[in-house]
Computed example of a mutant assay.
Amino acid sequence: MNEKDVIDVISKKVKLVRHEKGYTQEKMAEVLGISKKTLVQIEKGRTSATWTCVIALCALFRDSEVIQAALGEDPLEVIETLAHGNIDRPREKTLGGKIWWKQIKKENDFILQQNVISKHYRIIDRDNYRWFSSLDQDETLIYFDELLENNATTL
């Protein structure tokens, strides 16, 4: 999944998110920082949301079941991974990947997973803290091996 894919998917979900949250078009447009006319055009499929609008929607409505069904349990992880190319620092605790994640590899204290929707990769530890995310499988495998190496030398 790339930036354009996310824009396409989320643009088609704006109206559903608005209804899910009980917002009027006026309120949703205000919250997203766009005109009501632009929101109507997005909802009717005549135009796509901008990348900035998609980021705002995912950030402000990250708990939306509609957005989570489209991007997975943490929509901002997908957005952040796309924006930066990868995330290589320990972050907040995840839910462990029980729903939107396929386990690729597990060794020692680390688990390599792939998101079944966005197809990006992440490494979490046994306590479900995310250590790394990337769209690149090779990069993620290298980081995984480095984590294992560093973990082995500290024991």
Score class of each variant (00 low, 15 high):
95 L>P: 02
125 D>L: 09
44 K>W: 07
87 I>W: 09
95 L>M: 13
53 C>M: 12
18 R>F: 04
10 I>G: 01
123 I>P: 00
13 K>T: 04
94 T>K: 01
29 A>R: 10
33 G>F: 05
65 E>W: 11
62 R>A: 14
20 E>H: 03
11 S>L: 06
88 D>L: 09
50 T>P: 06
145 D>Q: 12
73 E>G: 08
118 S>Q: 05
87 I>A: 04
60 L>I: 07
87 I>S: 06
69 A>S: 12
54 V>N: 02
7 I>V: 13
79 I>Q: 00
107 E>W: 06
135 L>Q: 11
21 K>V: 08
78 V>E: 03
47 T>Y: 07
42 I>N: 03
63 D>M: 07
71 L>H: 03
137 Q>C: 08
31 V>K: 13
53 C>G: 11
101 W>F: 09
22 G>S: 01
120 H>P: 05
54 V>T: 06
75 P>W: 06
82 L>A: 01
113 Q>E: 08
19 H>Q: 14
111 I>M: 10
31 V>Q: 10
54 V>D: 02
12 K>R: 14
10 I>T: 00
144 F>R: 02
92 E>H: 14
143 Y>N: 08
69 A>P: 01
82 L>G: 00
67 I>Y: 05
146 E>V: 09
61 F>W: 02
103 Q>K: 15
31 V>G: 05
76 L>M: 15
105 K>M: 13
